[in-house]
């Protein structure tokens, strides 16, 4: 099974959440699916964005898959650190 890569470009703020949510809703997460969220060009995240990440993590791990967050930028990583989300996710 091919890994799925989700690429997020720009700010993940309240104005852009729906785009990501729609894409996530359309994913067919299968048993054992490996998913990468590429955050190289994600410039910002709000708490509702974190909520989408958390829901994905729960969905994927409940199907014995793995979610990896790739290349978080320092200011965004700081939001994960402050909120304790760094302890939940796998980063690379």
């Amino acid at each position: 099974m091919e890994p799925i890569t989700i690429y997020i470009d720009g700010p993940l703020d309240a104005l852009h959440l729906n785009d990501l949510q729609e894409n996530v809703n359309n994913l067919q997460i299968q048993e054992g699916q490996f998913v990468i969220i590429d955050c190289t060009d994600m410039t910002y995240i709000c708490s509702s964005g974190l909520r989408i990440f958390l829901a994905m993590h729960k969905d994927i791990t409940s199907k014995n898959g793995k979610l990896v967050i790739r290349n978080l930028q320092p200011l965004v990583k700081n939001v994960f650190d402050m909120t304790g989300f760094s302890k939940i996710f796998n980063f690379e």
Binding site: S47, L50, R51, L54, K58, M82, T83, G84
Partner: peptide, 18 residues
């Protein structure tokens, strides 16, 4: 809640925390 494992984590209150 900034400490529970993912499965148990409630996300309310995060905005005011930030």
């Amino acid at each position: 809640d900034i400490t529970s494992p993912a499965e148990e984590r409630e996300i309310g209150g995060l905005g005011i925390f930030l």
